[in-house]
Simulated scan of single mutants.
Amino acid sequence: MSTAFVARSLDEVRFWSRIMKEHSLFLRLGFRCEDTQLINEANQFYSVFEAIENRANTFDKNTDPQVIQRFNVEVHTAVSHIWAFKRKILGLILQCQLPGANNFPLLVDHTSREAFYFRNRLEQLNAGKLDPLPDAIINENVFFLRIMADHAKFIGHLLDPSERKLVDQAREFSEDFDKLLFQARDLDSMRPQSQTPPLLDQFLDQNRVSVKSLRDFKKTASDLIAACRIKSIIHPLLADHVYREAERFLHIIDMFESALTGQPMPSMSFE
């Protein structure tokens, strides 16, 4: 246990607890008015993760690592519960038990994958066993590239069909990230032979270019939605939500690049 463990734990919990809180809101907004039990459960999860987020903000890097380790266990329990809730919703939708609701099955699956990722990261942190750099580069990119591809699809479907140019742009981003994801999975299946510094460096460089473009597109869309300048059914908070996730992916890519080129990257390890 070290200050690096504390800092990394707080960074993960602060970011992802807010994401889980917002997922609760988005899912609630997609339920039908008669789905009172699901609405109540979503509201409860919103409160749980808001409390976690607020509590995480009371800690700092000098907090006793054992306190943070126990906190991570508590958060892990909450994330496990919201993951199960999301999978329950997905089952109801796919079994046609929520006709007329407005949560896409892919969106619900998407949010559950993020919960699973968060839960797994908490387990890694408490065990002190983060992936070695070559594995982390591939694993994180496979995860986030799919997240970015999903975002582009959601944006395309939630924009008004009359916003033809923006819909086309979203579709192009979806296709681009699908291709990047396939390439990442190819690199994954070629492990460990594929994990050479030159290949990983090129992999990061290529992904960074596309993520920056998508990040800028999301920022523009978010600003336009907030100003009521385009037609869509995208909640302003959802537009900001997907923008923040793109920003985080870029931050992760930059940290990997720094480590790969021999520069220190303290936030990515316990060393």
Rank of each mutant, 00 (worst) to 15 (best):
R229M: 14
I234P: 02
Q44E: 14
D176P: 00
D186R: 12
L25Y: 15
H81K: 15
S189W: 03
D64V: 07
A149E: 15
I82Y: 04
H81I: 06
I19Q: 11
H241W: 03
N103S: 06
G91M: 01
F256D: 07
E247G: 07
T58Y: 02
A115R: 03
Q206K: 15
T261E: 15
V209N: 11
G30D: 00
K165H: 11
S47T: 13
R55Y: 09
K88E: 10
A246F: 05
N103D: 08
E247T: 10
K153Y: 07
L214A: 12
T58G: 03
T77L: 13
M148R: 04
P65F: 06
H235E: 05
A152W: 11
Y243E: 13
H241A: 05
F5Q: 08
H157N: 14
G262K: 14
D60W: 00
F177T: 00
M190S: 05
C96I: 08
W83L: 09
E50M: 09
K129D: 10
M190K: 14
Q183Y: 06
A78R: 03
A227T: 08
I68D: 10
D188N: 11
A170N: 09
P236I: 06
D160A: 15
Q193C: 11
G156I: 00
I39P: 06
R32E: 12
I82G: 01
S17M: 03
F118L: 06
S9R: 04
N207G: 07
F270N: 13
I39S: 14
P161M: 01
A42I: 00
F71V: 02
R121Q: 11
G30M: 01
H151N: 02
I252W: 03
L187N: 02
E34H: 13
Q169P: 00
N57A: 14
T111V: 12
M268D: 08
D168Q: 13
L187W: 04
F143A: 01
F203M: 05
E41W: 12
G100Y: 03
A4K: 11
Y117P: 10
D60Q: 02
R191N: 00
E271M: 10
I252Y: 01
F15W: 05
Q37A: 15
H157M: 14
S24H: 03
L181N: 08
K179N: 10
L107H: 01
V6G: 08
R28Y: 11
P132V: 11
E257L: 05
F144H: 12
S222M: 12
A136W: 00
L94N: 07
D131L: 14
P132E: 13
A115F: 03
S47M: 13
L98E: 03
L98R: 02
S258C: 14
E53T: 11
I252A: 03
S162T: 06
E34Y: 10
L27W: 13
H151K: 00
L181G: 03
A170H: 07
D131Y: 11
L199M: 10
R14Q: 14
L237F: 09
E41I: 08
E271C: 07
G128N: 05
T3A: 12
A259D: 07
N126Y: 02
L145D: 07
P161V: 02
R32V: 01
D188C: 07
P132N: 13
Y46I: 01
I89P: 08
I138D: 10
